[in-house]
Design a binder for these strands. Structure first.
Length: 353
DNA sequence: GATCCGTGGGG
DNA sequence: TCCCCAAGGAT
């Protein structure tokens, strides 16, 4: 078996089975020589970091409708971008998205660098994303390694080394497969294969275009690969969120610090989230009342249980923390999911249970 | 290299 | 219910 045979089989499959996605150039346009728009490739790749295609779709449409090119995005207000990103998670991506757009405009004449190394210098663009943009948008034979490629490669070559330690080994194997011709299609084919056939749990090896080449399949271990070192259990933290309203409909919100969890996003003032019973920390003097029930939410590395308290604040109130947002400007969808859950619990009609 | 950083869907 | 995990990057 030659690596070239594997690449040819993969591209043959891709030409007939490629998924239609909003940020891809369709076969008809591609045959006409149309190249993908680097802005759309970049935006989609940032959104797709650790995020499923299904979750990204609507966000991609909203972003490109509102900001059709990198120049438009570069002039957007921070709070508008953060609000548009709300619910998609990993909010550092949105902060770096803006930094990157502004750097492209101010340092690169409004055009994305056309090489992997050039792209790597931009905020929010790491090894994966740089290689993906360089190959898809600019036809550079860069090796693209994401979770799909790691899985496909580990199975194809029956690599038993567990992740994340196997990363360098898998990257070297993926590099062997990367062709000079159509490297972008090759990369997308690897990822499509991993997303639709060579899936984590129950791969459908029976219809895999690479079955004849797959060492993991031959040895009967494909489904068990890649091996992974076990993860630590998630602890549970507890906190109190304070949802203050004024009679005129304004709500008391707080912009979170740029760094850290939910950085740069709006949220309800609250206590720290700790492993023990939280010490009350209301943002203003008021008759705070506990809302029945609780909010449960799981972040990447801990579970959170939140108690919610509400109060009607006087129109002349001068809270120690946060700022009032007029009811006409407030939209719960602009908040990260855990904060939206707090709003939903507090807004629920009392059911008596 | 190890940690931190969201969310929703699937088994 | 619980765990896994998805087109990762920054520190």
């Amino acid at each position: 078996m030659r690596d070239e045979d594997i690449g040819a089989a993969l591209l043959g499959w891709y030409d007939t089975h490629a998924r239609v996605l909003p940020w891809r150039v369709g076969p008809a346009d591609r045959a006409r020589g149309v190249r993908p728009d680097p802005y759309r490739v970049w935006l989609s790749e940032i959104m797709l970091q650790q995020t499923t295609v299904a979750a990204v779709r609507d966000y991609f449409h909203r972003f490109t409708a509102r900001w059709p090119n990198v120049a438009a995005l570069a002039t957007a207000r921070d709070e508008d971008v953060m609000a548009e990103w709300a619910g998609l998670g990993y909010y550092a991506r949105a902060r770096n998205l803006l930094k990157c757009a502004r750097a492209v405009v101010s340092d690169h004449g409004g055009r994305f660098p056309e090489t992997r190394d050039g792209l790597l210098t931009l905020p929010g663009i790491g090894p994966y994303t740089a290689a993906a943009i360089a190959s898809i948008a600019f036809d550079e034979a860069a090796t693209v390694v994401d979770g799909n490629v790691e899985r496909v490669t580990a199975r194809l070559f029956a690599v038993e080394t567990p992740l994340p330690g196997a990363k360098a080994e898998l990257t070297a194997l993926a590099a062997r497969l990367t062709p000079r011709e159509r490297p972008g299609d090759h990369a997308q084919a690897m990822m499509d294969l991993g997303a639709t056939i060579c899936t984590p749990r129950i791969p459908t090896c029976g219809i895999c275009p690479l079955r004849a080449f797959c060492k993991g399949q031959a040895e009967g271990v494909a489904t068990d690969l890649p091996r992974k070192t076990p993860k630590a259990a998630k602890p549970t933290r507890y906190g109190i969120a304070y949802l203050g309203r004024r009679a005129d409909g304004a709500v008391l919100l707080e912009r979170r610090p740029e760094r850290g969890l939910l950085g740069g996003m709006l949220g309800w003032p609250g206590t720290d989230w700790t492993g023990a019973e939280p010490a009350p920390a209301p943002p203003a003097e008021a008759n705070w009342r506990e809302v029945p029930g609780e909010v449960r939410h799981t972040f990447t590395h801990f579970h959170l249980v939140l108690r919610v308290e509400t109060a009607l604040l006087p129109v002349g109130a001068n809270p120690q923390r946060g700022h009032f947002v007029p009811g006409t400007e407030f939209r719960a969808d602009d908040l990260p999911t855990v904060m939206r859950k707090v709003h939903d619990l507090a807004s629920l009609p009392a059911t008596g249970d």
